[in-house]
Computed example of a mutant assay.
Amino acid sequence: MMRRLGPADYRDMPWKNGGGVTRELLKLPHPSDPARFLARLSIATVGAPGPFSLFPGVDRTLMLLDGAGMVLSIRGAQEVVLDRRWQPFAFPGEAEIHCQLLGGPVRDFNLMVDRAVAQASLEVVHLAPGGTRTLAGAGTVLLHVLDGRVSVAGPPLAVEETLWLEAPESLALRSEEGAVVAAVHLRRPGAQG
Rank of each mutant, 00 (worst) to 15 (best):
A183P: 11
E123A: 10
A138N: 14
V181F: 02
F109S: 14
G178M: 05
S170G: 12
L186D: 08
V141G: 02
P168T: 06
A136P: 09
L127C: 08
P156H: 06
L173G: 10
L146M: 08
E123S: 11
L111V: 11
G190E: 04
E169I: 02
L143R: 07
E160P: 02
A172R: 06
G190R: 12
R115G: 07
R149I: 00
P129E: 11
T134D: 08
W164V: 13
P155S: 06
S121W: 01
V180D: 03
R149K: 12
V180G: 03
V145N: 04
L127Q: 07
A118K: 08
E176I: 00
E166N: 11
P156Q: 05
V117W: 15
P168N: 11
N110S: 13
F109R: 08
S121Q: 13
L165K: 01
W164D: 05
G139M: 09
D147M: 13
A138R: 15
T162Q: 10
S151Q: 13
L111P: 12
L163T: 03
L171N: 08
V106H: 03
S151A: 14
G137R: 13
P189M: 11
S175R: 05
G131W: 00
E176A: 15
G190P: 06
N110M: 13
D108V: 10
F109G: 13
P189L: 12
L146P: 03
G139W: 09
A183R: 04
L165P: 03
A182Q: 04
W164G: 00
D114A: 14
H144P: 07
S175D: 14
E176K: 04
L122G: 07
A138L: 11
